[in-house]
């Protein structure tokens, strides 16, 4: 084959590729189903496969958060065999209001999603003792120290993966809420967090989780009580529109919205409203006695408030 033939062949292939792309692009918009919602032709072609990529990138973010110390699928399978999967964690009684409790929850939620068999890193020695000399030797060449990204803005290293995950599966709201948490709480990028959440809200307009996070951002970072109140009301409505009735699977998300609303009302001096919301939280809480104590304290403040 001469050089001229090769060049002509390449030119023909290039022309055919460009022509095919130009022909397919407008037609892809008319395709039905989730594929049609994709932003680009490449994502359309990937179809539901892009959700696999998205989950992979989300796990990658978790790997980065733990500086590469992460169980392989084989370690996860072994852990699942040894400890059993699907054990629901008891909700944290501290989660009813309070910044510290909430930070813990979001962080924990992020980790749990990414590695259900990861057991929230309680088992820091997941590889176990070395089984043989090759295993012992190999541990010098891989990450065996469990550290978290912390300080000097190193937490930002997880963000490219979260961004990519959201690109590949824009309907997974957790990608937006987790990225926003890190952006506003650890990196001080409140504007970026809000922009990313709003981008998520445009794609998922009825997401109570994104509305809730926007409310937290408005209250905790911007100190804008009115906006936070509106956003949490919208989150509550979205929750009711989505679930209707309370059951064991959705109880926590409603309790979280109501607890934050109650905390906001309490801090802004609306004791009546705070009592109303805490009463609703009590009905949903697995530890109503702790809420009852709080309600008693608020009722004592009630005459003074009036």
């Amino acid at each position: 084959m001469t050089g001229r033939t090769t060049a002509l062949g390449c030119a023909a292939l290039l022309t055919a590729a460009v022509g095919l792309a130009a022909w397919l692009e407008p037609r892809s918009e008319a395709w039905r189903g989730r594929r049609a919602q994709a932003d680009s032709f490449l994502l359309t072609l990937l179809g539901d496969g892009r959700r696999l990529f998205a989950n992979h990138f989300f796990v990658k973010a978790d790997v980065y958060l733990h500086s590469g110390f992460y169980p392989s699928i084989f370690d996860q399978a072994r852990s699942a065999c040894e400890h059993g999967l699907g054990q629901e964690q008891e909700p944290d009684p501290r989660a009813e209001g309070g910044q510290q409790a909430h930070d813990h929850r979001v962080h924990e939620g992020h980790e749990n999603h990414a590695a259900e068999a990861h057991e929230h890193h309680d088992d820091h020695n997941f590889p176990g003792p070395p089984r043989d000399w090759i295993d012992r030797l190999s541990r010098h060449f891989r990450v065996t120290e469990h550290t978290h990204l912390a300080g000097a803005q190193t937490e930002a290293e997880i963000l490219p993966w979260l961004r990519l995950a959201a690109e590949f599966d824009p309907h997974q709201v957790e990608f937006y809420t987790v990225a926003a948490y890190w952006l506003r709480s650890r990196l001080g990028k409140v504007d970026q967090a809000e922009a990313f959440l709003r981008r998520g809200l445009r794609v998922n307009p009825n997401s109570e989780e994104i509305l809730f996070e926007l409310g937290r951002l408005a209250w905790e970072n911007r100190k804008d009580a009115a906006r936070a109140r509106n956003l949490w009301s919208a989150a509550e409505h979205a929750w009711h529109a989505r679930f209707g009735a309370v059951d064991e699977t959705n109880r926590v998300s409603l309790r979280r919205i109501l607890a934050h609303r109650a905390q906001l009302e309490e801090e802004t001096g609306n004791v009546d409203e705070a009592i109303r919301y805490w009463t609703r939280v009590r009905e949903l809480s697995p530890h109503p006695e702790a809420i009852e104590q709080r309600l008693a304290t608020l009722r004592q403040r009630l005459p003074a408030a009036h």
Binding site: A156, E157, L159, W161, L187, K189, Q192
Partner: peptide, 13 residues
Amino acid sequence: SVNFFEDTLMVRY
């Protein structure tokens, strides 16, 4: 050269 959240410090990816 991709810009992620206007952060220039990310390097690990």
